[in-house]
Write a protein that binds this DNA or RNA. Structure first.
Lengths: 340, 340
DNA sequence: ACTGGCACTCGACTTTGAGGAGTGCCAGGG
DNA sequence: CCCTGGCACTCCTCAAAGTCGAGTGCCAGT
């Protein structure tokens, strides 16, 4: 059975009212607040159908209706009009992001901005190393048997690791290694580097091979294996808006999930180009977040994607507004990265 | 009026019972659970005095007594015996901290460990730049008009900033600057560097002065002005233990405070050598944390202090245990840093 | 100085009842 | 055939009232 236009209109009205009032919405209130052009009784019939189809439900008999996860899904997919950002919001974004001095700064400003605009929990992934290229590798002698390896990626990320050398090594040899490494690796995608690093060891003089092997192993760890994805989080206090009503009474599971980087990365990290992804309630694979919704998207200079960002909130959220904000922020951040 | 020994014993019993049960404790329950050697009526008289002195209070008539902030303070200062760590805890600390590969790793492991052991919110400050010395400064050419400045501190912290040069600059000149800067600044406390940086500009060749000034300004920002203190936070989910009872019904203000780095730094950053600081409820200057207690201490290699760490929880917390854990973790982290 | 006894207070919990929002269904009308 | 007004019904919310019991303060007695 398919739903006719009016039923969809009723669903939209229910979602919009419920999102803004946080109270189950009844047929009478619905016709008063929206120009549906029919009587409450008719709306009731439509509601009965919508309930049968699983889009809305009653918390208890003789209460109004509340959208189900499926209802929100339908709303997002077919009923929500794109809500353009207000000029004030655009200005807020620009004001917030100009003046960022480095990548850390950009990420921190972004995550706070997102949290503030959406009034929800915001998550921003640092540009993924897996999607970056090597811009420069530096070997800094700390002592005769210790180096600091610094990797600068084209996305602005900088990673450093300590290298313990097998024995005292002369500065000239370090410089030599540094030159060779850079010649070989500069400009390469991080994911393409392992064979090149192996080649570096093979090609080096026999007497310097152990030293080079040492550096190479740390290099590999830094470039690929560790593949450390970093995150920034902000706005957890927003979880407490709407009392204990959202999130079925306990913030616990949500806060727990937010502490797991792995989980957050799953949420915002899996990005397809230029798509905004919305996960509603049960659609989240993580049990702890079955009462939450996540809106996420990728960002990066131009059309490429180097990382993900998004927000998390109650299923009862303003989807059109949130989606618009997340998209806009992602675009601004992308532009910002493109400038470097 | 001074309190005799038994009254203090009663106070201790009240604190201990309330901390473990989270319920107001009455005179009868008290004599049953502790060997006070007197009758409930006597205890009641003692309680009346303790209440008059402001150490305990009744949530309402005909309820048991609850410690006040002043009561906890007295308990911490005079009544709590040091609780030695269990072997299991010692082992947990060691297991958690060995295998940390760099400073980031150490800090993250520490903060998680602390949150887990105390079952509270943990905060760890990265080694403060203000207390660090320069180990090495590196200038990495990114393009002919851009450098990346990398500062490596003796505490393991690494800061980087982009430098926009006034015009194309030859690599040799960069190397020259790099050498001069290192000669001048290596080993110096960051706080002592500003005049040295100024001298660097003064001493440089006239035609290279603008370039050097450029680098110097970023250098100063990195070394001193920005003076960016970093933090790691973990265990916010622990705030939800004990229901909504702790924190007078709303986590909101606490979560808000935890989002402000400045506030957290105030809490754990002001450290005197080898002291563990306990701030109880109202003693916190931040309004949002008037229902919380903070236990903090400094850490660093040997007896020096390079940063702070601590935990935050409800005033109703296990002070002896928490204090012991915080101290132990700080000592272990200090030892770990000393090894590098 | 401590104890047992006793009257008293007051929150927690239960019961009862009125009120009302909202529904489902049905018969009638365009 | 779809919409509408009417009506009986459900069941939540809220307030009032009452019981229960933990815990207290005080006092007289040892």
């Amino acid at each position: 059975m398919s739903l006719d236009d009016r039923k969809l209109e009723v669903l939209r009205a229910i979602v919009e009212d419920y999102v803004s009032t946080q109270e189950p919405v009844g047929s009478k209130a619905l016709v008063e607040r929206h120009q549906l052009g029919v009587s409450p009784a008719t709306v009731r019939n439509d509601m009965a159908v919508l309930e049968e189809e699983g889009y809305i439900r009653q918390p208890h008999t003789s209460a109004g209706r509340v959208p189900t996860d499926a209802g929100y899904r339908l709303f997002v997919d077919r009923l929500s009009r794109v809500k353009p950002l207000s000029p004030a919001e655009r200005r807020a974004i620009e004001r917030f992001l100009v003046g960022a001095v480095d990548l850390d700064d950009v990420v921190h400003r972004t995550v706070r901005l997102l949290a503030q605009l959406t009034r929800q929990v915001a998550v921003v992934q640092y540009p993924s190393l897996a999607r970056s290229s090597v811009r420069h590798l530096e070997l800094v002698p700390i002592s005769t048997t210790r180096l600091m390896l610094v990797m600068i990626a084209d996305t602005g990320r900088v990673e450093q690791r300590l290298v313990e050398l097998p024995g005292p090594t002369h500065t000239d040899d370090v410089l030599d290694m540094r030159r060779k490494i850079n010649t070989k690796l500069s400009g390469e995608k991080l994911s393409d580097t392992p064979p090149l690093v192996a080649a570096l060891v093979d090609e080096s003089d026999p007497e310097k091979r152990t030293t080079m092997a040492c550096v190479a192993s740390v290099l590999l760890e830094t470039l690929v294996e560790r593949s450390e994805e970093r995150l920034a989080l902000a706005g957890t206090a927003n979880l407490t808006r709407g009392g204990v009503l959202d999130f079925q009474g306990s913030l616990r599971p949500v806060l727990e999930a937010l502490e797991e980087e792995v989980i957050l990365l799953k949420l915002i990290g899996e990005v397809e180009p230029s798509t905004t992804r919305v996960r509603i309630g049960d659609e989240n694979e993580i049990d702890n977040l079955r009462a939450a919704s996540v809106v996420s998207t990728g960002y990066g200079p131009g059309t490429t994607i180097v990382g993900g960002l998004g927000v998390l909130g109650p299923t009862r959220m303003d989807y059109p507004g949130t989606i618009a904000t997340v998209r806009a922020v992602a675009r601004y951040v992308g532009d910002l990265l493109a400038q470097n």
